[in-house]
């Protein structure tokens, strides 16, 4: 198989398989998780301004008071790489084209050089986060194979995408194929690893927020 065939496979059957497993996994896991149900809270609720599941879904994106100071790397690094990933995925021209091809939705792209810069910053932030995971006692203690693995599969698409655009290491065609393949691996493992938090965090925040909202506590 030559690199153009690899690329065509990645864009064709590979993408089909990856998106298929992704959709399958996401639906399966979401249904499996949320059909477990929960008991109705029978205690008389108390109402308070700013306390609801929806409030918490949004509020939890901000660092709680004092926490930024306690764990600056987690917050600044975390914000940087999450926002960076979002910019690259949703504002890079080739990615918008992919989304538009799959969904019909389209919007203007950012200049390629800016995306390049964001990719570099994102990778730097991810490396810092990795270093933090290695050196910070609580994080290191919690870390399992899955943590290193998911870091890698998240890092690789950014790295290969950047290398492809910069024409580094391997010919563009090969790198582009590897980039698409690495993104496909990310799609495939997402529903079955902690990366699934991209979906469940909304449910988790909502549960936490609504349970505490019944007590009148905006969390």
């Amino acid at each position: 198989m030559n690199e153009l065939q690899l690329l065509t496979w990645a864009r064709g059957p590979g993408l089909d398989i990856a998106v298929g497993i992704f959709v399958l996994g996401v639906l399966w896991r979401l249904i499996e998780i949320y059909t477990l149900g929960r008991k109705k809270d029978l205690a008389a609720p108390r109402r308070a301004a700013g306390a609801s599941g929806l409030h918490t879904v949004f509020r939890r994106s901000l660092a709680p008071p004092g926490m930024l100071k306690r764990s600056p790397v987690s917050y600044i690094g975390g914000y940087t790489f999450h926002i960076g990933l979002a910019i690259i995925v949703f504002l890079g021209a080739p990615h918008i084209l992919l989304i538009s091809n799959l969904t019909g939705l389209s919007w203007p792209a950012l200049p390629a050089q800016l995306i390049d810069l964001v990719a570099v910053v994102t990778m730097a932030a991810m490396l810092v986060m990795l270093f933090d995971r290695i050196t910070k006692p609580a994080k290191r203690f919690l870390s399992t194979f899955e943590d290193w693995f998911t870091w890698t599969v998240t890092f690789l698409p950014v790295l290969t995408g950047w290398l492809a655009v910069q024409h580094l290491l391997l010919p563009y065609t090969t790198m582009l194929a590897l980039h698409i393949l690495s993104a496909e691996i990310l799609l495939i493992v997402l529903p079955f690893t902690k990366l699934f938090h991209a979906f469940t965090l909304f449910g988790s925040r909502w549960y936490n927020g609504s349970a505490n909202a019944r007590k009148g506590v905006p969390v």
């Binding site: 499996e32 059909t35 477990l36 149900g37 987690s74 994080k139 938090h197 469940t200 449910g203 549960y207």
Partner: peptide, 22 residues
Amino acid sequence: VIDAPIASYFESCVHCGLCAEA
């Protein structure tokens, strides 16, 4: 006792360790 919130919570944890700081 395991219910949907517990499932959702476990599936969401990214081992960030911030709870330790609290």
